[in-house]
Design a protein around this nucleic acid. Sequence first.
DNA 1: CATGAATGAGCTTTCATTCAT
DNA 2: TATGAATGAAAGCTCATTCAT
Lengths: 201, 201, 201, 201
Amino acid sequence: MKYKTGEETKMKIIDSAFQLLAEKGYDAMSIDDIMKGAGKTKGSFYVHFKNKEDLLYEVIQMRLDRDLDHIVEETFKELSNETCNVQLILKQLMHQVHLGSGGVDRELWTAAHYQMVVLSRKNQIVREWMSKQYHAWSDFITKIITRGQDLGQIRTDIDILVMVNMLISLLEGYELRSIVDPDIDVYEQLKLTELFCTNQP
Amino acid sequence: MKYKTGEETKMKIIDSAFQLLAEKGYDAMSIDDIMKGAGKTKGSFYVHFKNKEDLLYEVIQMRLDRDLDHIVEETFKELSNETCNVQLILKQLMHQVHLGSGGVDRELWTAAHYQMVVLSRKNQIVREWMSKQYHAWSDFITKIITRGQDLGQIRTDIDILVMVNMLISLLEGYELRSIVDPDIDVYEQLKLTELFCTNQP
Amino acid sequence: MKYKTGEETKMKIIDSAFQLLAEKGYDAMSIDDIMKGAGKTKGSFYVHFKNKEDLLYEVIQMRLDRDLDHIVEETFKELSNETCNVQLILKQLMHQVHLGSGGVDRELWTAAHYQMVVLSRKNQIVREWMSKQYHAWSDFITKIITRGQDLGQIRTDIDILVMVNMLISLLEGYELRSIVDPDIDVYEQLKLTELFCTNQP
Amino acid sequence: MKYKTGEETKMKIIDSAFQLLAEKGYDAMSIDDIMKGAGKTKGSFYVHFKNKEDLLYEVIQMRLDRDLDHIVEETFKELSNETCNVQLILKQLMHQVHLGSGGVDRELWTAAHYQMVVLSRKNQIVREWMSKQYHAWSDFITKIITRGQDLGQIRTDIDILVMVNMLISLLEGYELRSIVDPDIDVYEQLKLTELFCTNQP
DNA sequence: CATGAATGAGCTTTCATTCAT
DNA sequence: TATGAATGAAAGCTCATTCAT
């Protein structure tokens, strides 16, 4: 069909752009490429987006924002339980993040994420978005850790901010590594986290 | 004299390219830009390099290769000492890496490193170089850990490969984070490492 | 009602196009711009006009044609009077032209007029239209001057065609000048005309 | 030859642009067109000019600036003569202007001039340049008129500024007219000027 | 009548690369 | 070695025009 609804085409463009962003990076992906991926011609790109930068922000919004809201809500339900196992919750959470959200291919997501890191050097909006993401994650994990400490399940001899930063950086470090070195077993690695954070008998 | 004439220009080009690579990325840096930074004109670029890709590989070789040879040698000397403190050696090593090698500005180096990560998705040579780097590091740190375990200073209840991967990933995760969030205190974070790896009384 | 529905939109488009034509010129005004000014969307432009050129001709017809017919008729009535003051009629006429016809903002009209001059270089239809305009004006003013000479009010020692051309060119020259240099006092300038054309005692 | 001196190519580009500017106007002339006229390919345009606007300003400088300096100097020499004929000087001057300066084809120059008038609506730099041009002309002609009045050759009953404006506007009006209506005899028209300005016996 | 998605040609500009000097 | 003019391909973007709805 020649004339679809605008929203459908827009989504196809965003999907195609996300793919190419992960594969080649923002500068290297051309609008021609993107539109070829979306099955439309170049000219029609500008029906849906003001310009290439505009598209980037929409891709971030639609495909890269780890939509915390849902995870947060679910996790807090579990945490409110008097007999919850904070260790287990944390472990599941890390795995869930590692696996990717919303059915998006994890490897693609990771690659796109690191494209954002390098883009953040040139682009303030991207930088601010990333910073916001980090803080949201920090806040969220801080709450979990605190709950675990209250229940006597997480060690209290380490500064909580340092511990949270470590968890996030470790996860990111593993994912980064896995771009170059796909053999690394992130699941195995994540077991360590448990060991370090919990109260040892 | 540091550079021979002729070779001097080549070095200036590599320096300028390294700077721009870190700031803007491979695709976004133009040969015009690079040569402006080197104080020469565009045309003379091709006297020194076959093409832009060729330059990339020279930059990698000259400015990004953490030249392990020297560090390795020095460290092994220390390790051979019967009363060496493996914890301390490891700590110094991590800090040294974090501070940057050869007087290069650390932030620049880190940024360039992550540009390599994203480039490795498109470019097999870069990918292979990075893989080689990781393995050299792994091997090196494995040896240190093993020595520490022999001396009873490092815990032995964790798989050694897992521990090494953790150390590397953690360091990378911190550096990655510091691109977006320069406030993070990597020195403080690295203290944790010590805590986790050593034999607790 | 001023416009019938449907015809109303067409008029709005013509108004918007006239405005933009004066401000930016034919090439620089886009159909998108025009329709934004008319409060409708791009697609509906082609309901009312065959293409952009077609619109131009309608703008010329509706907004740029100094509709002489009415002026001519009125003026001839005055001229037929045995005791008419030809000087005064001429003066009023020049002022009327300068002020603009049909309540259109004079400055806009002038700007649009000079857009037509440059367009006439490329477009034969515009060129012919302008030529026709000039000749209609020439004929009209010739008749007035002749009547003035008959009444002994206008000097007869100058070739009548030369005098008419002078009057028209002077008026145009002033208006042209006022585009760049809005400070010029066209009213004051026009007084000269009177001085030159009348029989001095 | 493939590799000329830069200045030669630059001049060819300016010449080609001037031609096209007069024929089609700034917006309608493409860099492809210009370079075809200059006998070079599009890409090389940017070796010589920063962008299209930059070229416009160079064209103005090189081809449109009526280089007054020389004319002014020559005229002042004549005016200093005690027995000079100011009428004649003025007449010669007007003809010289009308014929064009520096061997440039007059019709082209005139067309380009009116392109500048319409451009001045959008572009402040052009507007300022035109304004400066007008004032330089005004000053110059004022001086001539004053000298003529001192010698009793030019009438003194008209405000001098008004008279100067009239002379300039009249000349411009004639040239403008001649774009649309090439039959007009500007030389004949200019005789009028003499009649109006001189002291009648 | 009006909408807005789609198109393709064409625009300005950038850039890696070549080459005569 | 170094220069900078020249090239051609490709980039982002605009726009007149068409057409299904």
